[in-house]
Computed example of a mutant assay.
Amino acid sequence: MPTLAHQQIHPHPHNKSAFAKHVILLLSTMMAGVLQASSATDQHYPIDVQSCDRIVTFDHAPKATVSNDVNLTEMMLALKLQDSMVGFTGVSGWKTLDPTLRNGIGELPELSPKYPSKEVLLGADADFYFAGWNYGMRVGGGVTPDTLDPLGIKVYELTESCIHIMDKPKVSMNDLYNDLLNLGRIFNVESRANTLVTGYKKELADFQAHLTPLPSPTKVFVYDSGEEQPFTSGRYGMPTALIEAAGGKNITDDVKKSWTQIGWESVIDRAPDVIIIVNYGDVTAQQKINFLRSNPAFSDIPAVKNNQFTVLEYVEATPGPRNIEAIKHLAKAFRAAL
């Protein structure tokens, strides 16, 4: 059946005046709708958004966004902001592009396999860069809010990463919620962002309400990578928030870093009951587990002795839309370790 838009209207010769009035009324209604939408947008901007220790002013919604890393890109997708993107960076240089993400981004190109240069962002005509410290930017590096601002590229920094340049509270799920809500304001999709965050909060609260309490918090070590020294997550890294929400305690909770190297002696002394393996890159999760099992120095660690390993994908262990499912996964693993 043809739609109304495809039907031809043939006015009766004696009813041309009525038809003209109908057309004028229709056009007036359409114009009023356009003006109303435009007015709503005008009223929203300009806005000020807190990004780490900066206030960033937006006069309009970004139209050419580049996001760095798989988790930040998934935040953009969760808010249905694909049409405001011109590409993403920092995925294939370290990890495989998740099939779910690949389907979500459609034809959007990966502009750089690792951290982008200013030239890459300029080449894409970017007007907004969603990144973080050690998530696409390095302190003192060539791509920072200060270096991009003169080029007309605004930056919003991942909240979890702010610890690299300022003091901040211990990591919590609010770090994720804050980013989603701020993105909602930046792109004028506040209702969408509020709905998403409210849904996440309810899902987590409902899950925790029916969770069997643990006799005491499960002691947990996060093993990202490294054999000489393990790379792990401290007090300000998202895994700490995930572990606590699931009923555990990160054994490096006193390490005032987000992601950092420590000594194996600390891991042995703190005797974790469960070891989380962060899966990404060339070394597989199973290879990391085999390394821990094969080293005699680790044989008395309860998690190694009892084979209590659980795997989180990189995109689950870093701030992003998969954090709630990660908490559910960890809660199950902690209770299985009793």
Score class of each variant (00 low, 15 high):
His60Cys: 13
His60Phe: 14
Ala61Phe: 12
Pro62Glu: 08
Lys63Val: 15
Ala64Ser: 15
Ala64Phe: 04
Ala64Arg: 15
Ala64Lys: 15
Thr65Phe: 08
Asn68Arg: 01
Asn68Phe: 13
Asp69Arg: 00
Asp69Gly: 06
Val70Glu: 04
Val70Pro: 00
Asn71Tyr: 01
Leu72Asn: 05
Thr73Leu: 14
Thr73Gly: 04
Glu74Lys: 04
Glu74Thr: 02
Met76Glu: 03
Leu79Asn: 04
Lys80His: 14
Lys80Val: 04
Leu81Trp: 09
Gln82Lys: 15
Asp83Tyr: 08
Ser84Pro: 07
Val86His: 14
Val86Thr: 15
Val86Pro: 15
Gly87Leu: 12
Thr89Phe: 03
Gly90Pro: 04
Gly90Met: 06
Gly90Arg: 03
Val91Pro: 02
Val91Arg: 05
Val91Asn: 05
Val91Asp: 09
Val91Ser: 06
Ser92Phe: 01
Ser92Gly: 10
Gly93Thr: 02
Gly93Gln: 05
Gly93Asn: 02
Gly93Val: 09
Gly93Pro: 04
Trp94Val: 01
Leu97Val: 06
Leu97Asn: 04
Asp98Val: 02
Pro99Thr: 06
Pro99Gln: 13
Pro99Trp: 07
Arg102Met: 10
Asn103Phe: 00
Gly104Val: 04
Ile105Tyr: 04
Ile105Ala: 01
Gly106Ser: 11
Glu107Val: 03
Leu108Asn: 09
Leu108Val: 11
Pro109Ser: 09
Ser112Thr: 13
Lys114Ser: 14
Lys114Trp: 08
Lys114Pro: 00
Tyr115Ser: 07
Ser117Lys: 10
Ser117Tyr: 13
Lys118Pro: 00
Lys118Met: 11
Lys118Val: 14
Glu119Ile: 07
Leu121Ser: 12
Leu121Met: 06
Leu122Ser: 11
Leu122Arg: 08
Gly123His: 14
Gly123Pro: 07
Gly123Phe: 13
Asp125Gln: 14
Asp125Ser: 13
Ala126Met: 02
Ala126Asp: 00
Asp127Phe: 11
Asp127Ile: 12
Phe128His: 10
Tyr129Asp: 05
Gly132Asn: 06
Gly132Ile: 01
Gly132Cys: 12
Trp133Val: 01
Trp133Pro: 02
Asn134Gly: 01
Asn134Ile: 02
Asn134Cys: 01
Gly136Ala: 09
Gly136Lys: 00
Gly136Leu: 01
Met137Val: 10
Met137Tyr: 03
Met137Asn: 04
Arg138Phe: 05
Val143Tyr: 05
Val143Ala: 12
Pro145Met: 11
Asp146Phe: 00
Asp149Val: 02
Asp149Asn: 11
Pro150Asn: 05
Leu151Trp: 07
Leu151Gln: 08
Leu151Glu: 11
Ile153Ala: 12
Tyr156Cys: 00
Tyr156Asn: 06
Tyr156Ser: 08
Leu158Pro: 06
Leu158Gly: 07
Leu158Tyr: 07
Leu158Cys: 10
Glu160Gly: 03
Glu160Ile: 02
Glu160His: 03
Ile165Asp: 11
Met166Asn: 15
Met166Gln: 15
Asp167Met: 09
Lys168Arg: 15
Pro169Leu: 08
Pro169His: 05
